[in-house]
Design a protein around this nucleic acid. Structure first.
Ligand SMILES: [Mn+2]
Ligand SMILES: [Mn+2]
Ligand SMILES: [Mn+2]
Ligand SMILES: [Mn+2]
Lengths: 217, 217
DNA sequence: TCATAAATTTAGACTAATCTAAATTTAATA
DNA sequence: TATTAAATTTAGATTAGTCTAAATTTATGA
């Protein structure tokens, strides 16, 4: 099995590879909160174990085995987050750190039972897809930043790209939570005016905020 | 906070001190599955942190702070075991290893919410008392080994002193589980004959087994 | 293309937890 | 009580993960 540390590296690399097909030493160091020299050492070890494809100075990608291992960790992380929110009543901005620890609990039987106990949810509290036991998952189709909506359009909030507690708390306070329907009433150079159902009170959100809210038409 | 390893030492020392008022280096080594020399190093560190009372060659005991920390870990271990059995349908012989990992999840808020979620159970799946958030707990009164029962006596199974998977599986198979009432029908030099409600079929258990079953009259 | 900057790797060192082997202290007993 | 045995500690080494500082490679852009 992989160590706690190795698992964190695999997960970070997996996330970095969602937007590009190679991750750099510095990016990984930033994601994990460590130094580049430390990352280099670990990359050698992960390559040795055939979990990543690595050539000096050339960045890394995951092997099939590495991707599989990463998906197990992502599955655990998101299922625990779901548990914390749905069963233990935590708010969506409170669960990340706990899930960071829980994702390393080894038993696969435990996570499969947990999955079943909760009715096999397909998305975590932040709208991210939860891989099944085989590592398969489906992202929402045609998910897009709220920023792309034009005046008069109406869409349902289904995800976020910023997972920071402060952003999530801001959304919570503004009732911009998952499942809410928003209607764009005005678009300016600086912000959008939106209404959130069911209160239908109008208010403004910045472009920066609208960029980090993902919606479905 | 304490490291994963420090927590395991504190918990082991706590358990050893249940039957005596001082634990030795070798006992701790055996409990943790490590070597005496390794234990000595760790004892120095724990003494440094004022978690144990330690004088070279003289064995150790827990300080008030050390006992408090140990009880937090015991609380976590037993609450997670309860969760695994009552919510995820694991059998009582399957949960120990998973709880060994889960007990190290740091968040106190998480464990308190879990406690609440399950209705604040007072005993774990093996009949061991679960400390509350303040570290208080009550053992069953007048708990005794089934071995002490005499012919004709009737009592309720409320605990075990052997927590091994094989012993627990044996009890499960014989329906000698928590809450069952047993009646002693015969006592010989080699074993006891008992009947278990509600089936009331008679069968024999060895003295060794009877020693490890705890009952309430 | 070539000098410089940025990214990455290497070298050498540190800490926590572990081990084996040797030395020391305590306990047992003849 | 003197000897031996058992328990414990010390000494010295190892491994995983981390760091800083220096060396190397790659990328940039004049
Ligand atoms: Mn983690
Ligand atoms: Mn999430
Ligand atoms: Mn443990
Ligand atoms: Mn238990």
């Amino acid at each position: 099995m992989h160590s706690f540390t190795e698992e964190n590296y695999l997960k970070s690399i997996y996330h970095l590879l969602l937007s590009k097909d190679s991750a750099t030493t510095n990016e990984i160091a930033a994601a994990i909160g460590t130094k580049a020299a430390t990352v280099t050492d670990m990359l050698k070890k992960l390559a040795e174990k055939k979990l990543i494809n690595y050539a000096r100075y050339q960045g890394v990608s995951l092997t099939e085995q590495g991707r599989k291992s990463a998906l197990v960790i992502v599955r655990k992380h998101r299922l625990w987050e779901y548990f914390l929110v749905e069963k233990l009543q935590f708010k969506w901005d409170e669960v990340h750190e706990m899930a960071e620890e829980l994702e390393h609990i080894t038993s696969v039987k435990l996570i499969d039972r947990l999955d079943e106990f909760m009715g096999c949810p397909r998305f975590d509290p932040h709208g991210d897809p939860i891989p099944d036991a085989q590592g398969n998952f489906k992202q929402h189709e045609s998910l897009q930043p709220a920023l792309l909506l034009s005046k008069g359009q109406c869409a349902k909030i289904a995800g976020v790209t910023d997972h920071s507690a402060s952003f999530l708390q801001y959304l919570e306070k503004s009732r911009l939570t998952l499942g809410q329907t928003i209607t764009v009433t005005e678009v300016s150079n600086y912000d959008l005016s939106v209404m959130v159902e069911p209160s239908n009170k109008e208010f403004n959100i910045s472009h920066e905020v609208a960029k980090n809210i993902l919606v479905l038409l």
